[in-house]
Nucleic acid binder design. Structure first.
Lengths: 174, 174
DNA sequence: TCGCGAATGTATACACTGCGCACATTAGGA
DNA sequence: TCCTAATGTGCGCAGTGTATACATTCGCGA
């Protein structure tokens, strides 16, 4: 009782911007490799287990929002890349920096705007359709295999460079 | 009471070969796209929720066994493939036929024998290390992107062929 | 044939999850 | 100032993984 409503320091009944806080908390869980549960997200945000439902229909909706945010971040980085090799390195680096998020992004049937933007950027840098698919598959495959620990590798960045040089560059030139 | 123990028709207290039945049930769940839970596996095998623990340490152990079986099947098919293009098509076809199993196989930190065999077969068909990684990443990327619905595609097999032709063939020749 | 120990399944129980429903608290406009 | 909608909380249910105690049955030696 007597919780000060307008005070900035003390926790008041209403959070203020729980929607954003939930996204941050969710991202935190993913990046820390902890088990992702709605309750854990709520705990991180310092709120009751059911509070998230005021902002997201269900767990899946929160996950989709997180995936969207992830694609946005990835698209930003890709857009700032000068050439194909840089894009490849940035793509893989993103995956390795945010394994949980990256897996989430691709592990669900999403058709949101951020995803479309990412695909568009990827497509805009390669001429022919077959090469488009090939370049993307190559880089995505590298990222996924590295994430899953299927490639013994001490220097992922170097691996990306050499693979791109061995496979992608000759193909583009052909 | 009075359950006939040796009768083949009537269910007896002991299952007979629950270990194998659990694998089959698990594979069935994965292939049918149903939610995978130990209890669901037990239900499919017509056995109590905790019976599986007599044969597998925990859920993870069952999943690992299933993944191992999956890699065995994949390795068999790859081994029977004559050339690189065929291997690529077989790899992707396997993934599309058994989405749940394929995701399981790669979605866990496994180091079992079946996996090693698969990797060896993959490696044995390509000369240089960079090409090895590249070929595998390309094909794996195709499989994963197709599974995740990130490639609009009516004929996956044709997509694999054209991508291999556009990317892999020039690289091998170079 | 008997009987006993080991193997195998079952029953019960607990903590945790996603989520539906009723309720409490609060903010902001009339 | 009061009323209403927005936002959080509490409680409850079904389903999950798993530990523990118990029941049933098989196989083997006497």
């Amino acid at each position: 009782m007597c919780a000060v409503s307008t005070s900035p320091g003390g926790r008041s009944y209403h959070h203020g911007d729980l929607r954003a806080a939930l996204l941050d908390a969710g991202l935190g869980l993913l990046d820390d490799g902890e088990a992702f549960s709605l309750r854990a997200v709520a705990r991180r945000a310092g709120v009751s287990p059911n509070a998230p439902y005021r902002h997201y229909e269900d767990k899946d909706a929160l996950l989709s929002a997180l995936a969207g945010r992830g694609f946005d971040g990835l698209a930003d980085r890709l857009e700032a890349s000068a050439d194909l090799e840089t894009m490849a390195r940035v793509y893989v680096a993103f995956a390795l920096e945010h394994p949980g998020l990256f897996r989430l992004m691709y592990g669900r049937p999403t058709a949101n705007a951020a995803w479309a933007r990412t695909a568009e950027i990827l497509a805009s840098r390669v001429a022919t359709p077959a090469l488009r698919v090939g370049a993307w598959a190559l880089v995505h495959g590298l990222a996924v295999l590295l994430l899953d620990g299927k490639l013994e590798c001490t220097d992922p960045d170097a691996l990306v460079r050499s693979t791109v040089a061995a496979v992608l560059t000759p193909a583009v030139r052909a």
